[in-house]
């Protein structure tokens, strides 16, 4: 693809100075439901992962960036323009929406060329072939998209979004439905584009996807920005978090006094009919609890780790 640096028109020069994506105090609510709450950040070239549990407001945020939702408060700027007011900015934005829908009756090639032509590209056919090749769909390019597998559709959507070599690429859950090999290929592709100076923002609710490609991440929880910055730094903070374990036994108080003596146990809290324990090492703790209960003659009724899902990790981030 002809990836000559974008520097020959005056409009681009202005854009080059402004951050590619800029949000200032952005909020969006639907009636009484606040989907995005007072978010401020700006992004330059590179890959950024937008992370958060389902319902955190990632899609709402991406839709605001793509101009399909106006913010209820605050300002959204993409390449210095407001995308919900000015369609001309789409010349330099590529969008891969989450919904899997595509024009099933078009072939992959036709679909990509459709995007190229609507972008007003002079040589739509050649650009489409390049884009198809970049996502590795050459073999299926002349089949109707309706016959594609999920992963192929996803790649066709990506090809359609990058056919005009956009300055900013927004992807909503781009890895859904892709097999591991396709994911790797897609990650490489996004990496290449980032290296060429493009700004890429993709959302995901799966930590590992983000871990693999995102150097920078934004974490959203319940509509708010919970963390942002380098992935590894944030990840370290997350694993630093002690494990919470809830225990019910025949004599909670007695068990608690024994457990608190152990160095591996950070904190013990007596609750109604239960004792909750914070520990750094799960496996060590399993030995400790067995020993302790035996020694104290306390019968264990239930030992359950508190929810270790992604959502609780985010909760931790928010309530820290």
């Amino acid at each position: 693809m002809t990836t000559a640096p974008v520097a020959n028109s005056p409009a681009v020069d202005i854009a080059a100075q402004a951050p590619a994506i800029e949000l200032v105090n952005v909020a969006r609510w639907y009636g009484n439901v606040v989907a995005v709450n007072d978010i401020t950040f700006s992004l330059g070239p590179g890959i950024t992962g937008l992370l958060g549990p389902n319902g955190a407001g990632k899609t709402t945020l991406l839709h605001m960036l793509a101009g399909f939702l106006a913010p209820s408060a605050g300002t959204v700027r993409v390449l210095g323009l407001s995308p919900s007011r000015d369609p001309s900015v789409y010349r330099r934005i590529g969008l891969v929406p989450e919904r899997e829908s595509v024009y099933g009756f078009l072939t992959g090639f036709e679909y990509v060329r459709f995007n190229a032509r609507l972008q007003g590209m002079r040589d739509a056919d050649a650009a489409s072939r390049v884009a198809i090749e970049r996502v590795g769909l050459q073999d299926a390019a002349d089949r109707a998209i309706g016959t594609y597998s999920k992963g192929m559709r996803q790649r066709a959507k990506v090809a359609g979004a990058l056919v005009h070599d956009p300055q900013v690429l927004l992807l909503d859950e781009p890895f859904n439905g892709m097999d591991p090999r396709q994911r790797l290929a897609m990650m490489d592709l996004l990496g290449e584009m980032a290296a060429a100076g493009r700004t890429i923002l993709f959302s995901s609710h799966i930590l590992e996807e983000v871990e693999r490609i995102g150097t920078e991440i934004l974490v959203m929880v319940a509509g708010r920005l919970a963390a942002s910055g380098d992935f590894r730094a944030i990840r370290a903070l997350m694993t630093d978090r002690p494990h919470m374990i809830t225990i019910r036994s025949s004599d909670d108080r007695r068990l608690a006094t024994i457990l608190i003596a152990h160095p591996a146990v950070f904190a013990v809290e007596l609750q109604q009919n239960a004792v909750s324990v914070q520990t750094a090492h799960l496996s060590a703790f399993r030995r400790i609890i067995a020993e302790a209960s035996l020694r104290a003659g306390v019968r264990l009724i239930e030992v359950s780790p508190a929810d270790e899902s992604l959502e609780s990790v985010f909760d931790y981030l928010v309530h820290r």
Binding site: A66, G67, P87, Y90, L95, P97, S101, Y103, N115, Q119
Partner: peptide
């Protein structure tokens, strides 16, 4: 209905 409108609207075309 099908959500393909996004592809159409995310283009630098006057409405």
């Amino acid at each position: 209905d099908e959500g393909t409108a996004l592809y159409l609207l995310a283009k630098p075309l006057p409405r």
